[in-house]
Design a protein around this nucleic acid. Sequence first.
RNA 1: GGGUCGGUACCGAAGUGGUCAAACGGGGGAGACUGUAAAUCUCCUGGCUCACGCCUUCGAAGGUUCGAUCCCUUCCCGGCCCA
Length: 399
Amino acid sequence: MVITDQNKINEVLTRGVESVLPTKDAFAALLGSGKRLRMYCGFDPTAKSLHIGHAIQLRKLRQFQDLGHEVIMLIGSFTAMIGDPTDKAAARVQLTAEQVKENAANWKKMATKFLRFRGENAALLMRNDKWLAKLTMKEVVDLASNFTVQQMIERDMFKKRWDEGKPIHVHEFMYPLMQGYDSVAMVVDAEIGGNDQLFNMLAGRTLVKALQHREKFVVALKLLTNDEGKKMSKSEGGFIAIDDAPEEMYGKLMAMNDGMIVPYLELVTDATREEIDEMKTKLVSGENPRNAKMRLAKMVVQQFHGVRAGTKAQKHFVDVFQKKEMPTEMIDFKVNEAMTLADLLVVTKLAESKGEARRLVEQGGITLDDVKLSDAFAMMTPGTSGVLRRGKRQFVRLS
RNA sequence: GGGUCGGUACCGAAGUGGUCAAACGGGGGAGACUGUAAAUCUCCUGGCUCACGCCUUCGAAGGUUCGAUCCCUUCCCGGCCCA
């Protein structure tokens, strides 16, 4: 059953969407025709966990699923080994088959938070090594003949590297070809992806048109960017993983820049337009942005971890950071033998090395039951108890 | 293939025989101030060591030297120019 309500279609094609190509109207018309379409979004398993950026894409995919269309979560099992050159100042490190396999292992499980893989109109999971690994040299050359070197170099990150005299490897030109071929192999009507994927997605449009004489639509989603306008991703550092513990996730959300509140609301939550506008108004009128951020953080955590976890994470935050109480749950560690504070910090993983442990202590970053510890080499006797804390948010309960 | 310049810590980038674990910037961490925000300020940012100090690190391997990131040789990789 395909939903053809133009208002709903319009909402799906608008919220969090940067652009629809070739045109939004044409795609809206096709979606409204009642035909069940097939569309996909690709994910390269380059990290162990999906992060919030992936969640945005999965959420959009889900919206199309809810409209009654067939959606595919494509694991870039093959493309991940090549490395997507998008947005990278330098060539990306290629992953081994083992790494890719390892990373991909839990992705479907994490994706079930967003997509229905069972029941009616279940989402499909595919891997692109199935077809990409089988292409012959001749086929690859034929694909490549649809593009020119100039078109490739036109891409801004290639142009940037070109201008800066940084290496651009030939195999990096293969990436758009491969991603484009995915659309051909799966015979999709549309592809969804981040705006940074526009070039690759359009390569698919070109190939679908050339090889199958069909139209493929492209839905480019807005990116969640940090205050420098940089895309948030694992390789850029500092990101929220979908499987972060609720309290951790809540904390990260609270620590982010105020300017991210509205983009997050739009892209990562189901808050209605009215709710978003209301929050915007409040922010403009001078309400403490912390309150809006708390609401946002709770919504996001609830979405990823359930209603209860979100409520609990918020309580944890209020207790620990606003009322300055100790968290109720934390890692326990039993001091079984006498050791120096520095050693203790290392074994409890609060510090990575003894040197770091010493530095933290010297700078007043380590407390035991809220008392600053000043001697990194003080002996901690067996049975020492209390809450050992590093900085603002890392705790270990000693017993 | 030839010429030329280069490969430095998480990233960018100085250093060009001892004073180099290696300037500076970014990123990251801690502290102050806060709203666990931003901005700002301070400190830290290879490992071991209470410490003196020791060890590992400047593309790789050899060599010269009392001593090499720095000089030489070979090799690997890259930019630019020429073919």
